[in-house]
């Protein structure tokens, strides 16, 4: 069972970006390298490149998001594409229009790319399977399945600081069960060849057979964070308290919240990440979120470059700026 096959074209190049699954180390590294080239541009004040001029990108957000939507918009604009954002959570589908009808209508407006966020796992795959062949689909998060651009920006940030993936021990802490980010991160970390991926959470927030995803599971921060190089904290949704998954925020913070004290068992140069938005005092202490180990804001800036790279690659744009023969 491999879900990634439809995202590559016949030459093995990226056509859609739906999941990390099925993508090899070389391709993931290419994404990181391309993102690096865009980042150095922005550092040199080159805000805009013309490589997607004349292309139309539609951000289809069936689920609310501020950060992801904004970085996708900025990424598209910096590639000189025309970009439209639709918050469908509050428009068409609430009038009973089916997902496919929404897509068909937008296709008729000559769109080149859909960036899709949806609350249901598999929605981006479904759209990629059914949309016109000339349209690329980027998954901006589907249900609890995947959030591959977030995972890639996290990988980018890790590489920026740690340079080499192979010796790293990485811990992902929090609600793994409901997290599309965690699923994509685990796949990316293992593909890029880190030494070890750990997940740390109470059993109520871990999916069945989680270790078969290629991780070691811990239920205790002391043990799980020992000698760790990278800590990725996940956002805890408040509604987990109402569904008998956790007793209270305070008990969660006591056991799994990241504090300076708990950081002591990690490597001295440990980096602390969080996909945002942060619940201060629930999953992370403010002094850690704002402290010297935190790279949380760096992650956000990197998000634009990584999304530019993925959009350019899915549109078959080579680093030189020319089109491939597709």
């Amino acid at each position: 069972m491999v879900a990634g096959t439809i995202q590559l074209n016949s030459e093995g190049r990226l056509k859609h970006f739906l999941t990390i699954e099925g993508l090899d180390k070389q391709l993931l590294t290419e994404v990181l390298d391309r993102a690096g080239s865009f980042l150095s541009m922005s550092q040199h004040q080159v805000q805009k490149v013309p490589i997607l001029r004349g292309k139309t990108i539609v951000n289809l957000f069936f689920e609310n998001s501020t950060r992801t939507r904004t970085t996708f918009e900025l990424a598209a604009k910096r590639l000189s594409a025309d970009v439209v954002t639709m918050n469908i959570a509050t428009s068409a589908t609430s009038k009973g229009e089916s997902l496919l009808d929404t897509i068909r209508n937008l296709e008729a407006m000559h769109v080149d790319m859909f960036v899709v966020r949806h609350a249901i796992s598999g929605a981006a795959h479904f759209i990629a399977e059914h949309t016109a062949p000339n349209i690329s689909v980027i998954n901006a998060g589907d249900g609890q399945h995947a959030h591959p651009t977030q995972a890639m920006l996290d990988m980018f940030t890790i590489r920026q600081i740690k340079k080499d993936f192979s010796p790293l021990k990485v811990a992902i802490v929090g609600d793994i069960l409901h997290s599309r980010v965690a699923r994509s991160q685990i796949q990316a970390l293992n593909t890029l060849g880190v030494d070890e991926v750990r997940v740390i959470a109470p059993k109520t927030l871990l999916p069945a057979y989680v270790e078969k995803l290629g991780v070691t599971a811990f239920h205790d921060m002391q043990q799980g964070l020992k000698d760790i190089d990278v800590i990725i904290m996940l956002r805890l949704q408040k509604e987990r308290m109402n569904s008998a998954l956790l007793p209270s925020e305070s008990e969660y913070f006591r056991c799994f919240g990241l504090t300076e004290k708990k950081l002591l068992v990690a490597k001295p140069d440990v980096m602390v990440m969080h996909p945002g938005p942060i619940n201060r005092g629930v999953e992370i202490e403010s002094s850690v979120a704002d402290g010297k180990h935190s790279v949380i804001l760096q992650q956000v800036s990197n998000g634009i470059a990584v999304r530019m790279a993925i959009m350019a690659m899915a549109m078959q744009i080579q680093p030189s700026g020319g089109h491939t023969h597709e």
């Binding site: 796992s121 598999g122 699923r183 999916p207 069945a208 057979y209």
Partner: peptide, 15 residues
């Protein structure tokens, strides 16, 4: 089924 497939693809599982 609440097993590897559901875990992998983030689908709500039935134990």
């Amino acid at each position: 089924h609440e097993g590897l497939f559901a875990t992998h693809y983030g689908l709500p599982g039935i134990p």
